[in-house]
């Protein structure tokens, strides 16, 4: 296929959050978490790999820095619960690590980098149900970009970024990408 002359030219990614912004946002989310959960005493943080798991660890670090509280933290791979498995080749699985305390009776906060269609969160809720019975489940995301396809909303949002479906949101974290930030890119 040849490109039509009036096709938009690929634009360089636009920075939405800088590295310092990301740190501030995570700090704020940690504060909100402490506030909304009345001290986070029964909270278990479960990140959705890969960047959600890293964010969960960062939130836990911040809570510990603010209140000296160690929040049990783990990660939950949703691959085997996805509803789009049959659309592509089977993917390699990510790690699932449930803290030794388990999730029964806990307030589980799922953590992900970007909230989009809501399907990943749906898969995570199903996975969680097979692991135990939390007292309640909440959701924390660094970016909410809209376009939900399921009745799901986040309890903690780092930044709402209205997007078009032709845009991609890239969350960059030092542990994976060498730097922190959030960028917006127009897909061709």
């Amino acid at each position: 296929m040849t490109a039509a002359p009036d096709d938009p030219v690929q634009t360089p990614p636009k920075t939405v959050l800088s590295g310092a912004d990301v740190a501030r946002v995570v700090d704020r989310m940690a504060h909100e978490l402490l506030e909304k959960t009345a001290g986070a005493s029964d909270v278990v943080l479960l990140g959705i790999p890969t960047r959600g798991a890293t964010l969960a660890r960062r939130l836990a670090d911040r809570v510990r820095a603010f209140e000296g509280l160690v929040v049990p933290t783990g990660c939950l791979d949703t691959t085997l619960y996805r509803d789009d498995l049959r659309l592509k080749r089977p993917r390699p699985l990510e790690q699932t690590q449930i803290p030794p305390e388990g999730v029964d009776g806990a307030l589980v906060v799922l953590v992900d980098d970007v909230l989009f269609s809501g399907r990943t969160v749906r898969a995570a809720l199903d996975a969680l149900a097979d692991l135990g019975r939390p007292r309640a489940v909440q959701l924390a995301v660094l970016v909410d970009r809209g376009h939900r396809e399921l009745p799901i909303r986040a309890d903690y949002v780092g930044k709402n970024i209205p997007t078009s479906l032709r845009e991609s949101v890239h969350v960059l974290l030092i542990e994976h990408d060498g730097r922190d930030g959030v960028e917006l890119e127009v897909r061709r």
């Binding site: 791979d77 085997l80 619960y81 498995l85 390699p92 699985l93 990510e94 790690q95 699932t96 199903d126 149900a129 097979d130 692991l131 135990g132």
Partner: peptide, 20 residues
């Protein structure tokens, strides 16, 4: 082998079943 490592965790769960 890596996938089997994750599958092995199912053995330790209360609900030993995946919907995959």
């Amino acid at each position: 082998l890596d996938t089997a490592e994750e599958m092995a965790l199912v053995e330790e769960r209360t609900v030993k079943k995946l919907p995959t």
